[in-house]
Structures are given as C-alpha cells and as structure tokens.
C-alpha cells in the first residue's frame, strides 16, 4: 500500500513541477536572475507549496502513525552546522549553473531529455562521491581495530 501511495505522491509532485514551470530550467534561471529580466514565478511555486505543506504538517503534529498506520519518520536533526551550510551552498551553486534541482532532473528524464539524463548521471556521481567519502573514515577505523 505504501508503494502505491508513494507512486501517487510522486506523480502529483511531477505534475506540480511541470505545471509550475519548475521543470523548465531556463525559467528557473529567470527567477535567479535578479539583475536581468526577473521572472518572479518561482516565488509563487514556493508560496503555494508551503501553504499546503503548513496545513499538512500541522495535521501531522503529535501523530505517531500515519493514516495508513506507518510510523511517522520526521527528521530529528536540529543543529545548524558547517556541513549544512557548505552542502546547501554547493547545491545552490549547482542549481544556479543549470537551473535543475533533483526533482526537475527526474521530470526532464521522463520527458526524454538527453541533457537531463546527463545531468542526472552527474548528480548520481556527486551523491556517490559523497558516500565514498563518508565510508572512508569508517574503513580507516576498521583497519585500526583489526
């Protein structure tokens, strides 16, 4: 059941990205171009999404199980650290270069864009790189223990 509802949520998200214009990288860059011909549309996307999101998270407050009986798993991290800021800045530089965030990348992939597919491969490589880096200290720790 949770697979079907996740599929539905993914579809709705994809439609939202298409309808809003977030699936069009040149439009996204138009929003980030404050000094040029500025297209404020993206602010309306965020406003619409957060308006619904705030209600949903308010409804979810205090629940330990979802409507389908799944355990509610919300992030517990609170700390604002270097990792959060540096990671977000790197993401922002990348987003500002091509105008593609991960969600838009999946939409472009589904639309059959070759450039979108290349972007996604690079994105996966970036995530893989992060993961390798995370594993390295662990591997070193194992080596010292052995």
């Amino acid at each position: 059941m949770n697979v079907l509802t996740a599929l539905l949520a993914g579809l709705v998200l994809g439609f939202g990205l298409i309808v809003s214009g977030m699936g069009n990288p040149s439009k996204v860059l138009g929003f980030f171009d404050l000094a040029g011909a500025w297209d404020p549309s993206l602010a309306f996307v965020m406003a619409g999404a957060i308006a619904v999101g705030v209600v949903a998270f308010r409804l979810a407050r205090g629940r330990t199980r979802s409507l389908l009986g799944e355990a509610m798993q919300l992030p517990r991290a609170q700390d604002i650290d270097r990792r959060l800021v540096v990671g977000s800045a790197l993401f922002g530089f990348g987003w500002g270069i091509a105008g593609i965030c991960p969600g838009a990348g999946f939409v472009l992939l589904g639309a059959g864009s070759t450039q979108g597919a290349v972007f996604m491969l690079a994105m996966l490589a970036g995530m893989g790189l992060f993961q390798l880096q995370q594993m390295r200290p662990q591997a070193a720790a194992c080596a010292t223990n052995a």
């Binding site: 922002g92 530089f93 990348g94 490589a125 970036g126 995530m127 893989g128």
Partner: peptide
C-alpha cells in the same frame, strides 16, 4: 551541465 549535476548531487547529500 556536468559540473552542475556533481555539485547538486554532492551538495544536497552533504547539506
């Protein structure tokens, strides 16, 4: 485009 993908992938995981 490739640089952008690498930054988005690495940055979103780190952040």
């Amino acid at each position: 485009l490739i640089l952008s993908g690498l930054l988005v992938g690495y940055g979103t995981r780190l952040g």
